[in-house]
């Protein structure tokens, strides 16, 4: 499969990059691990591709103003090996290790991972393949080929978003008219067709991810189920963070965020049940049960939703048990 034709720009600065967005029908390429495949399959046929590859100012990991700030073009490999990240937010390094495979981690970026398009077995196919079917809703057709509704069910499968959402991280978006902060929760639209604020005809560039430093005190982890020990997207993933008092039992704050099981990374209400409580095995089970009831996977991949939900529940139980340092 060959790439379609497009105009390609790789400006050396953000300042030079921003005006190129206004040309219309442009796509931004960071590491390209998602976009290149989509281009070859003609899922995307933009007139312009704007590469951030040469913009060195977007590649950094620093502590500043009470945040850990990570430039959007920082590779996942850099994040997983960064001493700063491993000291302050080891769960972020671990999430980076869970993405795809080591080779792809060297190419993929944190900004790109957050902007990952949603996926579906009817959508992520070749041009030839799609000729055999009606066009799916995500690709511009009338109906979703999974649910037969006028809606898209493609699944978000980013591995970096859950733990960042659990820490209430935010992002910076640079646009020709200026720079703005946005919470990650606001960034994700939970609309499978246009999964984030920059997904369709981007008017800005995601430049930075900020994690509030106080969250480093929380016990956190990203846990992922997949068919094989590498490469695969999550069939279910959970970002888990709990703020335990020094006794290590009482939970002062908690977050559970799901991935791979819905239109975006889902911040689940079930975590609220942990707050103000002493964490016990029984409580964990009931929270996990509730969390699993909050997700509504549909068959967008090879694994059935029933198994995804069951697996997600076990992820939450095992993960929280681990964080609360309870015995299995």
């Amino acid at each position: 499969m060959r790439l379609p034709e497009f105009d390609f720009y790789e400006p050396p600065t953000l300042q030079e990059a921003l005006p190129l967005l206004t040309s219309g029908n442009a796509r931004i390429i960071a590491g390209g691990t998602d976009l290149i495949v989509a281009l070859k399959r003609r899922l995307e046929t933009p007139a312009v591709i704007l590469s951030l590859h040469k913009i060195k100012e977007l590649d950094y990991i620093v502590q500043d103003e009470g945040y850990l700030k990570i430039g959007a073009m920082t590779t996942l490999k850099k994040i997983k090996t960064s001493p700063t990240v491993n000291r302050l937010f080891p769960a972020l390094a671990q999430a980076a290790r869970e993405v795809a495979s080591p080779i792809l981690q060297g190419q993929a970026t944190i900004g790109g991972n957050l902007c990952l398009n949603t996926r579906c077995r009817y959508y992520n196919q070749s041009e030839f393949w799609r000729q055999s079917q009606q066009t799916c809703y995500k690709a511009g057709g009338e109906k979703c080929l999974v649910t037969h509704k006028q809606d898209c069910s493609a699944s978000f499968s980013g591995d970096m978003a859950p733990i960042l959402l659990a820490w209430e991280a935010d992002i910076t978006i640079a646009a020709p008219e200026g720079t703005k902060q946005m919470s990650l929760r606001e960034f994700f639209t939970y609309n499978s067709k246009i999964p984030n604020q920059l997904a369709a005809n981007p008017k800005g560039i995601l430049t930075e991810v900020r994690i509030p430093l106080e969250k480093k005190e929380w016990s956190s982890l990203y846990t992922k189920a997949r068919l094989r020990g590498s490469i695969d997207f999550p069939l279910a993933g959970a970002g888990l963070a709990v703020d335990l008092d020094p006794s290590g039992r009482l939970c002062r704050g908690a977050a559970i965020v799901a991935t791979g099981v819905g239109p975006g990374p889902l911040v689940l209400e079930a975590a609220g049940d942990l707050v103000g409580q002493e964490i016990t095995g029984e409580l964990i089970k009931s929270v996990a049960q509730k969390a699993a009831a909050e997700i509504h996977p549909v068959r967008t991949g090879r694994i059935g939703p029933r198994y995804q939900r069951a697996r997600f529940k076990t992820l939450v139980i095992d993960g929280l048990t681990n964080l609360a340092e309870l015995e299995d």
Partner: peptide, 15 residues
């Protein structure tokens, strides 16, 4: 539905 090495699951070194 399994016409590439992401969707067709070969065992890896990890398995």
């Amino acid at each position: 539905f399994s016409s590439n090495f992401l969707d067709y699951k070969l065992p890896l070194a990890t398995e």
